[in-house]
Simulated assay, not measured.
Amino acid sequence: MPLQGKVAIVTGSSRGIGRAIAQRLGHDGANVVVTYSGNRDKAEEVVSTVEASGAKATAIQVDVRKLEDVRSLFQKAIEHFGKVDILVNNAAGKNIFKPTAEMTVEEYDSMFDITRGVYFALQQAAQHLADGGRIISISTSGTVMAIPTGGAYAGAKAAIEQFSAGLAKELGARGITVNTVSPGVTNTDGLVLEQAQVDQLIAQTPLGRLGQPTDVADAVAMLVSDDARWITGQHIRANGGIV
């Protein structure tokens, strides 16, 4: 259990990629703070699976668009577990793909409000994370793919990559590593595509399938382990080689 004794916050971990990450870190021995925005029952399911693996877990409701929620998250985590060693910024809102000429201010803001929340979660981590800690933010491979209708979405994620690269320089002296993981198209309940589109994506992927949440979780688990102590300021693409 390589993360025995560590405490991890995983935002947006009641389902999808976040759920897989929380479960994997718990399997590796970390005590996990599971966060959710609305579905407590789903979050408690994740808590149960983490605890079944022998670690401890708790569920905290957080809307990362609300800065008071982000600040109180770290306070509550430290009150509950005594410290925080790992932050995984996974929470995301609705990804909106729309021509630039048609994007509304409200749609744009809905994505960049999440990005702002990630920035201030990074700030909280910089203030409260234990020395030698790990910070991972989930981005997207779309930041390096020019996708028609995807400019605003990719821009919101690209900002997170730059936040992380700068923070890696700031926290290196404390032994804290900061990286991003960029999935490709991943088979979650948020994936709404026609089968023809899915088949096309699979054909474009050298490894010949869609990503699974566990593929991303395994990459995160590697980066938060001691084996990755020399990796920081990097953008890791866990996407089967599609880009």
Rank of each mutant, 00 (worst) to 15 (best):
E102K: 12
V62E: 03
I160E: 09
V178C: 02
M111E: 13
Q75S: 15
L193Y: 03
D69N: 15
E161C: 11
T35C: 04
A77W: 02
S141W: 08
D131Y: 07
A146Y: 12
F81D: 07
G233D: 10
I86E: 03
N89T: 09
T177L: 05
D226T: 14
F120L: 13
T58Q: 10
N89I: 09
T100D: 09
G117K: 08
D215E: 07
F74D: 02
I96V: 15
S137T: 15
F81R: 02
A52P: 01
T177K: 10
A146K: 14
V34K: 07
V185F: 15
E51P: 00
A203F: 02
V33W: 04
I147S: 12
V34L: 04
A130M: 15
L87M: 03
V70S: 08
K66Q: 12
N89D: 08
L3M: 08
Q4S: 15
D28T: 00
G38K: 12
Q123S: 08
G166V: 09
N239I: 04
R19N: 03
M111R: 06
A43W: 01
T140D: 09
A59T: 03
K98Y: 08
S13K: 04
R65Q: 14
V64W: 04
F74P: 00
Q162I: 11
T35P: 05
V47T: 02
H128T: 14
A101P: 00
A221E: 05
T115A: 13
I147G: 05
E51H: 01
K94G: 06
I231V: 14
F81S: 08
V46W: 02
S37G: 15
D109L: 12
H128V: 07
H27L: 13
G233V: 03
G155W: 09
N89G: 10
A219K: 00
A43R: 00
